[in-house]
Amino acid sequence: MRKLTSFILIAVLSLSFIGLSTISISAEHDHGKTPKYKEVKLTDEQTEELKVLYEDLVNQRKGIINKYLEFGVLTEEDATKIKGHLDTFYEKMEEDRFIPKWEKHHKKTAE
């Protein structure tokens, strides 16, 4: 009985230590927080560079969607819907002059 009690005590202490270390590790990381961006005005050159990169990104992702469609992973309807979302994403980025506006997407917390 004494061995069982000792074992349980050691197990509880070990698990509580693991739990505390997990909490401290997750406190070190900034999970769920988006980066803060400064309000800046990009030059036309900078905007053009970002435009080219985003066009490449969207085209690559559409290529991946086409492969999924070809391999039968997605239906034509789903592929079209996803490509539409990619087009909407690109249009929104272009509208914002390729500066991310992520803070608008935060969930409001109850105060």
Rank of each mutant, 00 (worst) to 15 (best):
E103F: 11
F98S: 02
G84W: 00
T47Y: 09
L50T: 10
E77A: 12
E111H: 07
G32E: 08
H31G: 03
L53I: 04
E55D: 13
H85G: 10
T5Y: 15
H29I: 12
Y37E: 02
I82Y: 07
V58E: 02
H31D: 10
I82R: 11
T43I: 04
L69F: 09
I25A: 04
T80R: 14
I8C: 06
L9R: 15
T22A: 14
H29K: 07
N66T: 03
L4T: 11
D87R: 00
E39I: 03
N66W: 00
V52N: 04
S16Y: 09
N66G: 04
E77P: 12
T5E: 15
N59C: 04
S26C: 10
V58L: 01
E45W: 03
T34Q: 14
T43G: 04
N59P: 00
Q60Y: 07
E48T: 05
I8V: 10
S24F: 11
K36F: 11
E28W: 06
E45L: 07
S14W: 00
G72I: 03
I23K: 05
Y37Q: 01
I99H: 02
Y54F: 03
I64F: 13
Q60L: 10
T47A: 14
K83A: 11
Y90R: 04
I25K: 08
E95C: 05
K33S: 13
D87L: 01
I18T: 15
K36E: 12
E103T: 12
L86I: 01
E77S: 07
T34M: 11
V73N: 12
I99V: 08
E48G: 03
L15P: 15
G72E: 02
D44K: 09
E55S: 11
S16G: 15
T109L: 10
I10H: 11
V73Q: 13
K67M: 10
H106R: 04
T34Y: 13
N66E: 08
F7W: 08
Q46R: 05
T109Q: 06
F89T: 09
M93R: 08
K104M: 11
N59G: 02
V52F: 03
E70L: 06
L74A: 07
H29A: 13
K38W: 01
K92C: 07
Y54G: 02
T22F: 14
D78F: 08
K62Q: 15
T5C: 15
E103W: 12
T34I: 15
E48C: 04
I8E: 05
D96P: 02
I18F: 10
G19W: 01
H29D: 12
L42P: 03
S6L: 15
G63W: 00
L57V: 02
I10N: 14
G32P: 07
V12L: 09
D96L: 05
K67P: 05
E76Y: 05
L9P: 09
G32R: 02
V40E: 09
L74D: 07
E49A: 06
K108I: 11
S6K: 14
H85A: 13
K51M: 11
S26R: 08
N66R: 05
I64K: 12
L50Q: 11
